[in-house]
Amino acid sequence: MTTELTTLLVEIFVALLILIGAGFTLLGSFGLVRLRDLYERLHTPTKATTLGVGSLLIASAVFFTWREPGVSLHEVLVAVFLFITAPVSAHLIAKAALHQRSPSRSGLPPETLLEKHDGHGAKPRPDAETKQKPSQPG
């Protein structure tokens, strides 16, 4: 195989990965604006963005391996890190939202279940005080 052909093939491969990656990154943020409640919105960035940035990082690894002497793999580090952390962030945000009783289109789980999940030591909800006020003797 001639070097020109290899160069062209690598270039097309990297270009495709860049387009796929950037496309999914955009899709993740687009879902953030388009979907209707917080819990739906949580789905898109965690999934689309990890794959999007993942593809971009693979593109970068292929590009630098081809362009410079030696193998360049440190991009994998960022990709793996994002893959590990994205679900954790999503879980923590969802937990915070459930704790605040952030409204959901499909309705929240029953209150008894949510209270069990709040556990002890959790900060009282913002609306907890206002709910207790009517019970005070006037």
């Binding site: 990656g21 950037a22 990154t25 993740g28 943020s29 953030l32 917080l38 919105r41 949580l42 960035p45 963005t49 990890t50 999007g52 940035v53 971009l56 960022v78 994002l82 994205a86 962030s89 945000i93 969802a94 915070a96 939202a97 605040q100 952030s102």
Partner: peptide, 18 residues
């Protein structure tokens, strides 16, 4: 909501990495 803003910030930094 506050959780919405945290989610937006989270997405924003991943976009910046991209």
């Amino acid at each position: 909501d506050q959780p919405d803003r945290i989610l937006a910030l989270d997405t924003l930094y991943v976009n910046t990495v991209a």
